[in-house]
Design a protein around this nucleic acid. Structure first.
Lengths: 196, 196
DNA sequence: ACCTGAACACCGTTCAAGT
DNA sequence: ACCTGAACACCGTTCAAGT
């Protein structure tokens, strides 16, 4: 009897850390706070994750994983690339607490890693190689990253939810789609592509 | 005789803070550290700048001011807009410690404020108004911001200067110019413009 | 007006010690 | 292998008190 005391997992530490950030913002993610949340001594967290930097990296990686789960849509290469990029953008805006955490810690790269991989896949399938591929990938990442930073500016570590509904239909969203479409148009050949 | 003890200035506090960041990276900017640097008690800094957030804002604003000093070149609207944008990009990469500080604290907006103003000026002179102007400005800021984040990724709070010379001729620099040119081309009419 | 010492409530991290 | 209490060296911020 009494409450079930499951042995603590590295995955659970990361999961609870993620939830803490989503619930109370990036600033709430301290080792001590997380320890209290897990009902555990602070050094226990170090045993499981090594350091705060590693913890943050793990949380961001987990988010990247989740963002990459959304299925890429469209039949032409251009549509699919655009779809992949917009998935990451939209997801990062929705869970902006974690996106902010990534920006603050300089780990935005990790957040985009899976998108980068997906883009390379789609673009190679579309026939791009070498420098052309690299330029296309980087251009798209530039637009996604820049849009994210501008969309989330002023949002720093406090979970103030005014205008929560406004974000979906905001100007910058439309402009992002537009700019993204232009960049994709510029770098990706228009050939149709059927999945074999 | 004895060393001249000038009365402390708000401007001097900000200046020394700026130098500290440039010399030892964003992480070195703590109120206590800065106080030691100024040979002063910690509360003195609070008397002059109010809080750490205000201090950071002031440092970033000072940097924005410096970036805006570089003269805009070119005779056509497109050239001048491109020139303004590249000035900010180049300057932000050169003094990347402060750029990182701005990103970490979510104040990248302040860093771009003067560029934004300059862009609005140039674009209005080129005949843009209303939504077209807003879209043009935001698209350009998106590319500048995105390029900055990608260029500076991995650089987090430590001033490790390997490849210091490589940055100037790096791939992303060329790509940034290229992408920027495309965005400008897309949003700014090609009309020539003479300064009256 | 300008500056201080001392304190409060936090941090990340380590380490000897427990089971 | 997994977890702890206690400590070290830091933070931002405040406040009564000094000149």
């Amino acid at each position: 009897m009494s409450k079930t005391v499951t042995k603590l997992d590295r995955d659970e530490v990361v999961f609870v850390a993620r939830e803490l950030v989503l619930r109370e913002g990036p600033a709430a993610l301290s080792m001590r706070r997380l320890a209290t949340e897990l009902d555990v001594g602070t050094p226990t967290i170090y045993w499981h994750v090594g350091s705060r930097d590693e913890l943050v990296a793990a949380v961001v990686d987990a988010q990247a994983e989740r963002l990459a789960e959304r299925p890429i849509e469209g039949r032409t290469a251009r549509d699919r690339v655009l779809s992949a990029a917009l998935h990451i953008y939209a997801g990062a805006v929705e869970e902006r607490a974690i996106t902010s955490l990534a920006h603050q810690t300089g780990t935005s790269g990790r957040l985009l890693a899976r998108l980068e991989a997906a883009l390379v896949g789609e673009l190679e399938a579309a026939g791009l190689r070498g420098a052309a591929l690299g330029d296309a990938v980087r251009s798209i990442l530039v637009v996604v990253t820049g849009s994210l930073v501008l969309t989330l500016r002023d949002y720093a570590s406090r979970p103030d939810d005014r205008d929560h509904a406004l974000w979906s239909g905001c100007d910058l969203d439309a402009l992002t789609t537009d700019t993204l479409r232009a960049v994709v148009h510029r770098h990706v050949p228009p050939n149709k592509r059927s999945r074999s």
